[in-house]
Design a protein around this nucleic acid. Structure first.
Length: 566
DNA sequence: ATTGTGTGCGCG
DNA sequence: AAAGCGCGCACACAAT
């Protein structure tokens, strides 16, 4: 990000050619090879570090997971990169340019490594000069696609995505500061006394006994959905499922303790003591982030359920002594993106200030904030029935441009077409199965059931493409926000207090957590205000990068606190 | 014994 | 049992 003018920045490919053995290739302005430097394991980190300090080049890498984790363990941080795997995923088959990148299996993302890599896992295809030549060839192909797209949006997207690749590795190394004592106290207060060997915590035992007594079955296994359902039917609760939503509709004394039991059961199995011992080490939760892991460009995660941490555990996120957290999130990011993408000035006016839903009420479209929320979500998700679906047409009156954008995206999807985000990430093609069903349904003598099914599937896909453009653009805003935060944090000097942690982030403010539209920074107390300013400035820059001078507010809810609890 | 599928629920 | 998008994970149970 904040790249020098194209051509003026130094670019060096850093390619693995063996176990911890690399080749660096310097390129000139026309992507021609200038110099090839073999780097053995013992000189690798030192060489990269000195070049980084001297020039801050853009490092062309296969993927951050491949080279950056190693460097970080040696204390070396990179400024800028071009991540070939992440950019390949964006540029292959993209509908945003006339001649997209040819897909290549060699540049697909590899499964996240769950076990330690063996020699053969990492270097199974190419090694030595073949690997280097292959990488250079892929890079040049990607550059050709980028230079053919005149407006620079894809270039911005690739730069941001690559920065995301670096950030994901950094956050994993740094970790989220996690107070095991606080977590344990929450578990004990909620679930009851921790069982000594096997068994359930005390509150769950009590609730379970109550439920079994009320269902008149002392041996009922509450975790078995079919058995529980049969037991409920026996006492006259004729539910079709055991979901919370449906159970709460029924009136029976068993419902209250059963729902309470389910709530506790969820906490125990998802984030109980087992999770704590498995995922928190030395006061840090270290999830595996997968940038671009969702089709829309959102990040995914693997292991630890990083993106599903229950709000109730947020008090366990606590800064080290002498440090603090900067916690920031955006309210209603997606509808704000929609207003800007569609240049809908009426919707942008409603988005002025911190509560877009209040603005929608003020516009007269709906009567209450609750209705505004359902209407806006329904518009972006494609609701057609229920409270939400009923309210959507009112938005169409007040915000015709915004609605036209999502409606068009839905229509394109229903027709089997491809839609793109603001910066040009394309939606996937519908499956061959989907296409076959659609063409089958157009036959003159098509079975009415097939026609109905095809219609339903078409609408399903239309809702996906409708949401894709908005969710994907929101992901782009967040990615630029992240990259700009990181860039600004790098300007803040390190501290020389004794740190709790070790590693490359022990003395510097750093990103510690990211969740779609929310960040948590872990910073030395003396730099809290500077870090908060970095977060705010970065948000403003992200908005301008995407939408220029179009007047759209993207306000942050930001606080500096010892704990991430609300 | 492992692998796949359905259910339910946490997050945005 | 959600209506209305995108995920990951645990558990039970069926299939292999």
């Amino acid at each position: 990000m904040t790249a020098p003018a194209p051509g003026s920045e130094r670019r060096i490919a850093l390619i693995a050619v063996g176990p911890r053995e690399y080749t660096a290739v310097e390129l000139d302005g026309e992507d021609r090879e200038v110099e090839r430097t073999p780097l053995a394991a013992e000189q690798f980190a030192g060489w990269v570090s000195s070049v980084e300090a001297a020039d801050g080049p853009r490092w062309i890498i296969r993927s951050a997971g491949e080279v950056y984790a190693t460097l970080l363990r040696d204390g070396v941080r990179l400024g800028r990169s071009h991540d070939l795997v992440l950019c390949h995923a964006i540029l292959r088959d993209t509908a945003s340019v006339a001649s997209p990148l040819a897909p290549s299996a060699a540049w697909e993302r590899r499964e996240p490594m769950t076990a330690a890599p063996s020699l053969f896992d990492v270097f199974d295809d190419d090694s030595g000069d073949d690997a280097v030549d292959g990488a250079l060839e892929q890079y040049r192909a990607q550059r050709r696609v980028l230079s053919a797209s005149a407006d620079g949006r894809l270039t911005l997207l690739c730069a941001a995505e690559s920065a995301g690749g670096l950030i994901a590795e950094e956050m994993r190394i740094a970790g989220l500061p996690w107070d095991e004592g606080v977590h344990d106290a929450i578990l004990t207060a909620t679930l009851g006394t921790r069982p000594v060997a096997g068994g359930l915590p005390s509150h769950m035992v009590e609730l379970g006994d109550r439920v079994r007594a009320l269902l008149d079955d002392q041996t009922l296994h509450l975790d078995s959905q079919p058995k529980l359902l049969r037991a409920l039917h026996r006492v006259g609760v004729n539910a079709e499922s055991t979901s919370r939503w449906e159970l709460s509709e029924h009136d029976h004394p068993v419902i209250e303790p059963l729902l309470a039991y389910k709530k506790l059961s969820r906490l125990l199995s998802a984030n109980g003591w087992t999770w704590l011992s498995e995922w928190v080490r030395d006061g840090r939760f270290r999830p595996v982030y997968i940038p671009g892991g969702v089709v829309t460009g959102r990040w995914a995660s693997a292991g630890g359920g990083a993106l599903q941490l229950p709000r109730s555990l947020r008090p366990a996120v606590r800064a080290d002594p002498g440090w603090t957290l900067v916690v920031a999130d955006v309210a209603q990011l997606e509808p704000r993106m929609l207003a800007a993408m569609s240049s809908d000035e009426a919707m942008a006016r409603a988005a002025r200030g911190s509560d877009l839903y209040a603005g929608v009420v003020d516009s007269g479209a709906v009567a209450t904030r609750e209705e505004a929320k359902y209407a806006v979500l329904g518009a972006m998700y494609g609701a057609t029935t229920g409270d939400s679906g009923r309210l959507v047409p009112r938005l169409r009156q007040v915000y015709p441009r915004a609605m036209a954008l999502v409606d068009a995206a839905a229509r394109t999807g229903e027709d089997g077409g491809i839609v793109s985000t603001w910066l040009g990430r394309s939606s996937p093609r519908p499956s061959a199965e989907w296409m076959r069903l659609q063409s089958e349904a157009t036959d003159a003598d098509a079975d009415p059931a097939v026609v109905a099914l095809a219609r339903r599937r078409a609408r399903d896909w239309g809702r996906f493409t409708r949401n894709f453009v908005v969710q994907g653009t929101a992901a782009e805003w967040s990615l630029i926000w992240l990259a700009e935060i990181r860039h600004r944090l790098q300007q803040i000097p390190e501290v020389f207090t004794v740190a709790e942690a070790s590693g490359p982030f022990a003395r510097v403010p750093h990103l510690a957590f990211f969740l779609h539209d929310e960040v948590i920074l872990h910073v030395p107390q003396e730099h809290a205000e500077a870090a908060a300013a970095a977060v705010r400035d970065a948000a403003a820059v992200a908005t301008t990068r995407l939408f220029g001078s179009f007047p759209i507010d993207v306000p942050l809810d930001l606080r500096i606190a010892e704990s991430a609890a609300k």
